[in-house]
Amino acid sequence: MLMRHRNEEPSIDATAYVAPSAVIVGNVRIAPGCRILHGAVITAEDGEVTIGENTIVMEHALIRGRSGHPAHIGAAVMIGPHAHVNGSAVGDEAFIATGASLFPGSRVGQGAEVRINGVVQVNTVVEAGAVVPIGWVAVGDPASILSPERHEEIWAIQRELDFRGTVYGAGPDVPMRDLMRQQSEYYGAHSEDQIIEG
């Protein structure tokens, strides 16, 4: 399904394939040879999404572009099933495995791998060719790549990366009720979306 959002429409090269059950919303640019499989959601909230040539987006992956944090996916990239790529830049020939999560402001270099259920935290830079092992967390710039049981070390770096400010545009003292009211208003813009092609 293709949808107009915030007066922007997707642009999909004629040689790309988008499965009928995929949802493409707003200012999304899909290059030649891309394959967007069933259940994938690619949504340009208020920032663009670009996907380079011959990139594969597997079933039920989510790619989201945001203001200040567009999603740029390079050429010949694999985005695995159930992966979450939110406001991240992914270099050419990278491998983002099943269930991986990339947060706003993160960058994954050319040929890098984020393996099954790996996490790349906000404003984190994974160098070209680096590997985030299964279930591990990359945090910082340059990234420290740590196993999940090293939570205290991860948090010591992560707390300096401004997760709330980067993801929600809010300071640490904003109450959750206010934060979710802001998010409700932000995502409320979808109530005016228009189906272009179903």
Results as ranks from 00 to 15, higher is better:
135 G>V: 07
135 G>W: 03
136 W>D: 15
136 W>C: 15
136 W>T: 05
137 V>M: 09
137 V>R: 04
138 A>G: 08
138 A>K: 03
138 A>I: 04
139 V>F: 03
139 V>E: 01
139 V>S: 04
140 G>K: 02
140 G>R: 00
141 D>T: 14
141 D>H: 06
144 S>G: 05
145 I>L: 09
146 L>S: 04
146 L>G: 11
146 L>V: 07
148 P>E: 06
148 P>W: 01
150 R>L: 12
150 R>F: 02
151 H>E: 13
151 H>G: 15
152 E>S: 15
152 E>V: 07
152 E>A: 15
154 I>P: 05
155 W>Y: 13
155 W>N: 14
155 W>L: 15
156 A>W: 00
156 A>F: 01
157 I>V: 13
158 Q>R: 13
158 Q>A: 15
159 R>Y: 01
160 E>V: 04
161 L>Q: 15
161 L>N: 03
161 L>M: 15
163 F>A: 11
164 R>I: 00
165 G>S: 08
165 G>M: 10
166 T>I: 08
166 T>D: 12
167 V>C: 12
168 Y>G: 08
168 Y>Q: 08
168 Y>S: 12
169 G>M: 03
169 G>C: 06
170 A>P: 00
170 A>C: 11
171 G>N: 09
171 G>V: 06
171 G>I: 06
171 G>D: 14
172 P>K: 04
172 P>C: 01
172 P>L: 06
173 D>I: 00
174 V>S: 07
174 V>R: 06
175 P>W: 05
175 P>Q: 04
176 M>G: 05
176 M>Y: 07
177 R>K: 13
177 R>C: 04
177 R>S: 15
178 D>I: 00
178 D>N: 07
178 D>R: 05
179 L>N: 07
180 M>F: 13
180 M>S: 05
181 R>K: 11
181 R>S: 12
182 Q>G: 15
183 Q>R: 14
183 Q>Y: 08
185 E>I: 08
185 E>G: 10
186 Y>W: 07
186 Y>Q: 08
187 Y>A: 09
187 Y>Q: 08
188 G>A: 10
188 G>R: 05
190 H>S: 13
190 H>E: 12
190 H>F: 13
192 E>H: 09
192 E>A: 14
192 E>L: 09
193 D>W: 01
